[in-house]
């Protein structure tokens, strides 16, 4: 058990990633309790988009925590904080409309994170993978769940860690999305969940992404999406368009 604890420590994880031996995909200590881990979610208010964020009150559902509340932090595509939104009176499942009005007139895209807060010693850490729905031209939202743990804070705000995705030192990782893209238009949204700038290659085109920043990339004539980077888990959210119809799925 002691060996396992050492193997899972943050220092050991950094060493494993440096050596490329049994790499850790997330630099997170699963022994820590009372932490709220968030995926990186994308918001879009560009090109008539509205984003609906759907999430559960996990602390109340599982732990009957009447002090449960959330803090949602919004960042622009350059990973600069643009809004903090707190909700105290939670329902068991909640929906938040994110449009340009909510973001003080911004019509663009970026990321956001949800952190659960509590006054109690819950004794367990949680991860809320939530769902984001994207409405194009005021039509029905197409929903996707979160897919990459990116940051965490303690319930009492005393501790926080950002951009916790693991990255290799030498070898580039290949991630080829297992779908065929034959639509009028396909875009992918990527964000850098690592704590350093990374170089990303998407279908032989190169992009430099600073930590926490996001990028919307148009997939031109390719029917396959191949992503290379040193991040162990760099998974896109894919937007497929056919006329006025939209499909959003995580890659």
């Amino acid at each position: 058990m002691e060996y396992k604890k050492i193997f899972r420590s943050k220092l050991a994880k950094n060493l494993r990633n440096f050596l490329g031996f049994k790499p850790a995909h997330f630099l997170i200590d699963y022994e820590k309790t009372n932490m709220s881990v968030s995926d990186a979610f994308f918001w879009r208010t560009d090109n008539t988009f509205k984003t609906i964020f759907s999430f559960s009150d996990i602390l109340n559902l599982y732990f009957k925590d009447d002090t449960s509340r959330v803090e949602i932090l919004f960042y622009n595509k350059y990973a600069e904080l643009i809004k903090t939104f707190k909700i105290a009176n939670l329902k068991l499942t909640n929906k938040l409309l994110i449009d340009s009005f909510f973001l003080n007139g911004i019509t663009d895209y970026g990321t956001f994170y949800i952190y659960h807060k509590s006054n109690k010693d819950i004794g367990t850490s949680i991860r809320n993978s939530c769902y984001t729905g994207y409405s194009f031209k005021n039509n029905l939202s197409s929903f996707v769940h979160g897919n990459t743990l990116t940051s965490y804070t303690s319930y009492n705000n005393e501790e926080s860690h950002s951009y916790i995705a693991g990255k290799s030192t030498f070898q580039k990782q290949i991630y080829q999305v297992q779908n065929n893209y034959n639509f009028e238009k396909t875009e992918i949204m990527l964000m850098n969940p690592c704590n350093e700038t990374i170089l990303i290659e998407v279908n032989k085109e190169f992009y430099e992404l600073q930590k926490g920043s996001s990028k919307l990339i148009n997939i031109k004539d390719d029917q396959l999406i191949k992503i290379k980077s040193k991040c162990y888990l760099l998974r896109p959210v894919v937007f497929n368009y056919q006329g006025i119809y939209l499909d959003v799925h995580h890659g």
């Binding site: 004794g123 367990t124 039509n139 029905l140 197409s142 769940h145």
Partner: peptide
């Protein structure tokens, strides 16, 4: 969900994925 010939289609996760520590299965 279906509205005006638009669709939304997604799956939900099992409840133990929301908890991260070793006691998560007991809690679920």
């Amino acid at each position: 969900s279906i509205k005006n010939d638009h669709l939304s289609f997604e799956h939900t996760h099992p409840p133990h994925l929301y908890l991260l520590n070793h006691n998560r299965f007991n809690k679920v």
